[in-house]
Design a protein around this nucleic acid. Structure first.
Lengths: 235, 235
DNA sequence: TCAAAATACGAATGAACGCTCGCGTTTGGT
DNA sequence: ACCAAACGCGAGCGTTCATTCGTATTTTGA
């Protein structure tokens, strides 16, 4: 079901002008070299941030020479793009994979699943996530993430349309967009500035209510298994 | 010839605290110069983006020399900070000013006001807003915006606490944080990638429902004046 | 085994850019 | 009118960094 995509697309940067494809690593050692370069890139980004990410530094970290780097990456941007793209695709796939599982699950549970999955994805590779988020604009990564979000939103929109009888939604696409964007923003923001929230049940609960609000679901339908609903209302 | 470190540091470049002021422009012409430098900065940011923002370029755009620039700004960052800080403060004040006016207004109306105000603020100075958003991480502006959001969230939290009998909220601070962060993210994101949404009544409606969800308000209380509620539910 | 192809190397190149410094020009108080 | 202080100038310094290129080493295939 997911469209075929290359696992590692560090090469053939298609920068709207000259297709700047570089040599393809065929031998085992060169493939290992490319691999170690990408790993070094990730390591530097996580440990020292974007300012430390110079091509010479990456090469040194990987234990190779700059010259070798440029044999497989046309420029610095290709190096970073390769890394970020693979990482973003992984996340997308994980979220998209959730789609089918929501089909026939009670509403409350489905919403909780979406929220939990978003939180879980943010917690993984938190260091890399953090670093990339902080530096997103420096690469052309905004479009990346828009594509990512779009893909997730499409799946969600379909689910909304499928369940429209239980919901109160005019425009499934718009609702999905609002949900995906706000959940992403909230988890990302929390990762950067309030990491403790990522593990807070109360925070998760607020996110669920946010989603329910957008979908026009009123939680008062009755307690559902799968969602702990601690009534804390004044009597 | 050799790198001569100045023995006496005439100007303190204190990175952690605010003691970074340069000469103060006292005469009229120097005040005009500072003004034109800030304007030039904004113009370049809007028209050409961060990469074009070099100190020499700013000076040229302002019709002055680099030397003059450094007479009033200790470094490049101070230049940008000056610009962004004023701009952010303006926005914050505008949102905070909304607080008192919400005190005794019907819930639906209050929510609609918050959403509309957020959208309105985003639309103003859209070009600058856009540019700054895209380049935020490059300066230390994340903290700026966190302070800004915190200030707005505090006002909102107080309002929530004040109205807690009409709402279903455990933790006013958390709810306010979630609302402010998601509204900001959604309007900012829309500005960058879906500007048409900023003028869409349907989008505004979704944002209202998002807020209502977080606050535990169910819109079915009855139609209220001030909120057009187009029922589009299947009968 | 051996030469051609592939791979690896890293010093050197050149461009970009923040910022300084020594000197010229304008202002305002007297 | 005078001059010290304030202001303004811009060529150039020092540094950083992406990228190249000529050479050395390893692998492949016959």
């Amino acid at each position: 079901m997911p469209p075929r995509r290359p696992l590692v697309v560090a090469f053939s940067r298609d920068r709207t002008s000259g297709a700047r494809a570089r040599k393809q690593p065929t031998q085992a050692r060169s493939r290992a070299l490319v691999e170690s370069l990408l790993e070094a890139t990730a390591r530097i980004l996580m440990r020292e941030g974007w300012d430390a990410l110079t091509t010479n530094r990456v090469a040194r970290e990987a234990g190779v020479s700059v010259g070798s780097l440029y044999q497989y990456f046309p420029d610095k941007e290709a190096l970073v793009s390769g890394l970020v793209e693979t990482w973003a695709d992984t996340i997308t796939e994980r979220l998209v994979a959730l789609g089918p599982r929501l089909a026939d699950v009670p509403l409350d549970e489905a919403i909780a699943s979406v929220v939990l999955a978003t939180l879980a994805v943010t917690r993984e590779d938190a260091a890399l996530h953090r670093s990339v988020l902080l530096q997103l604009p420096r690469i052309g990564a905004l479009e990346f993430f828009e594509r990512l979000n779009q893909r997730v939103a499409d799946v969600l929109a379909e689910w909304i349309a499928h369940r429209r009888d239980e919901l109160d939604v005019d425009d499934p696409s718009l609702a999905a967009y609002v949900i995906v964007t706000s959940l992403d923003a909230l988890t990302d923001h929390a990762l950067l500035l309030r990491p403790e929230l990522l593990d807070s049940a109360r925070f998760a609960r607020q996110l669920e209510r946010l989603v329910a609000g957008v979908l026009g679901v009123h939680g008062t339908h009755a307690g559902r298994a799968g969602v702990r609903r601690t009534r804390a209302r004044h009597p």
